[in-house]
Amino acid sequence: MARSPWFLGDRVFWHAPDSDEIGYFGMPGSRQGGPVRLYWELGWLGFRSVAAYRTAAISGAITNTFFGFLRAYVFIALFQTRADVNGYSLSDTLTFAFVTQGLAAFVALWSWWTIAETVQTGQVTTDLSRPYDYQLAWLAQDYGRAVYQLGMRTVPPIVVGMIAFGITLPTDPLRWLALVPSMVLAVAISFGWRFGLNLTAFWLTDHRGIASVGLLAGFLFSGFLVPLAMWPDGLRELVTLLPFAGMVAIPIDIFLGKITGADLLAAYGLQAFWAVALLVGSRLMFNAALRKLVIQGG
């Protein structure tokens, strides 16, 4: 007999789904493979659920690329007045313009209210009764989503930027390798932040007010719009320490070769610290939300 997952306690009546019905979920530790398999499948599910909207991905990539052009022209005009800002040359900044546009969908910087919507529609009750860890399940799906966006939304603006503005990619394979942990952590930070913001829907009937301000704050401080190197001194050091720099600014600086050697370890450390802090923080919030949750109906 299946037992309620630990995080549900005895609040929700839980009926174990037929493994035939949702075959690929399997049960943690069941014959269909352990939890690793379960979260792998959830990641694949996340991948497929964005892949279903291919037209949206293509038009999104077009919009990102267009914005890349606009930002590139602004920077070209600006750099006629000086050659360098804190180590950022025009060529770095043009690369920055297109790579950030590409990363926006990867770290889901704009709006992402998938979980809040399940709270509003009541779908969340079904999700809570499933035999998986709610937060990890969403995290796995988010990684699936990110992998899809990497192909469909990140690559096209960068390729167009290479053709139109001659931006160059790192040639050192080690730099590409150094990018991997940073990108993985970037998604975790972004997810932790979005998960927490989405959970506000348990308390507020309308999440789009306060929570969207939170999302926008993340957007602003991520260093997406203007390289953090160009921010005013003093403010820049502060913003660099916030979690949001780990979503865009740090991966970009690794891409551009501005963070190398021992600094890499410090950068990973900062990203990992915030990823853990946000995931744990939002998990505590989730537990509080469950204590508050009253499921209506019989």
């Binding site: 602004v74 005009a77 600006l78 750099f79 006629q80 007045t81 000086r82 800002v85 719009l225 203007v226 160009m230 921010w231 005013p232």
Partner: peptide, 11 residues
């Protein structure tokens, strides 16, 4: 505001 903090003018 951020870009004009670093650059005096735009075109």
């Amino acid at each position: 505001l951020l870009i004009f903090n670093r650059f005096p003018s735009l075109a």
